[in-house]
Design a protein around this nucleic acid. Structure first.
Lengths: 203, 203
DNA sequence: TTCCGATGTTGACGGTGTAAACTTACCAAA
DNA sequence: TTTGGTAAGTTTACACCGTCAACATCGGAA
């Protein structure tokens, strides 16, 4: 017989990280509505109450998953914005918008957790810092387009966020009618964005 | 003693409508995450399994609530669009956008049910018809602005929807940073919309 | 009048999150 | 080296939930 000298040690060793990993996978596989703390524990090979020692509640675990999602999100958007150092501020903003929607489509469950459900549990310092960084990133991109001296940077940034968030949400939730070409919607909408937030065409 | 000649009749009489009403109220009070079929039954003064005779599952009840939400939604948007018969197509679209966001802010829980959660259960004929009517309404408004002969009415309609849905979602979910003036965001974003979907400013 | 089907009730099952009590293992101080 | 304290996991229990099956009740049609 093959020797099995590991009769399941009583202590796991790194349950915290294992739970975050298992939770992220569960989230991506089954979606937020089927996310279960007991299933995370099962995947980590641990009793259903073991997570209590590391996460006071299921929301605390989701909180950490969302925070790491924001970290990755900000990194990816930065990379895309800096991909061509010679591009204009307009092109940078559009590139970030494309990366935004791409992230959402690539990680729908995590995206929804970050931008939709993660409103109830804004306690974690990690989550607050990471989501704040994302907002600063957006604000900076918008200020570069319309000029940092403008007094409506905040509301114009909200405009940009609303558009990309709306596109991402409608695509992820499969709300758009069948024949619609997602790429066309994304390209057209983002292309109109710099002029729109600059306020040209005011009659 | 006061006479109580009604010892709780065995049959309710109109449990279907009562459940829809109680469910709508519960949804508005406690939000979708705390929506419970058993609580609906409790509010209707009926046993926890009674709803089974009218709604096969909790989603069937939510489905009907969402469908009625769409009915009200379409009615309100139509009323707003037709409020001033002399206004231009641009003004009509902007008015509908304002009415869209206003509906979402006035009925956040129902709005979220309609445009977010009601994707899993698209079986009810009522729901499908009502949500389709909302889409036709949008498509018509967009066609009037950019011209019905354009071959990108669909994607431009998606653009409009994405923007208003994004604004509504961010406001409802309280994602926008504190100092932001919602009214300014709504006004600025909607004002830019007709030109944006017409495609002016193409370089 | 009788009977049958629609509607409500009761009780049960498996699932969930969470709390309390108990067990195990490790580490540091005496 | 022994010992004690504490962090980490387990077990058990509770109150919810949705759903199902079996049973009770009532009204209307034959």
């Amino acid at each position: 017989m093959t020797r099995k000298p590991e009769p399941k040690p009583y202590h796991h060793g790194d349950l915290y990280e294992t739970l975050v990993t298992a939770g992220t996978e569960l989230l991506k596989e089954d979606g937020l509505e089927h996310f279960t703390l007991r299933e995370c524990a099962r995947r980590a090979g641990v009793s259903h109450a073991a997570p209590k020692n590391h996460f006071a509640s299921v929301e605390d675990l989701l909180c950490e998953i969302a925070a790491r999602g924001f970290d990755q999100f900000v990194t990816e958007l930065d990379a895309e914005a800096d991909s061509d150092p010679a591009q204009s501020a307009d092109a940078r903003l559009i590139a970030m918008g494309r990366a935004y929607v791409a992230f959402a489509r690539a990680n729908p469950a995590v995206y929804l957790l970050m931008f939709r459900h993660a409103q109830a549990f804004n306690k974690s310092a990690h989550l607050q810092a990471a989501s704040h960084a994302a907002w600063v990133q957006l604000e900076t991109g918008v200020a570069a387009v319309i000029g940092p001296e403008r007094n409506d940077v905040l509301s114009r940034a909200a405009h940009v966020w609303a558009l990309v968030h709306g596109i991402a949400s409608l695509i992820i939730d499969r709300r758009l009618p069948g024949p619609i070409d997602f790429e066309q919607v994304i390209a057209q909408s983002l292309a109109s964005l710099p002029a729109a937030i600059r306020g040209v065409g005011r009659s």
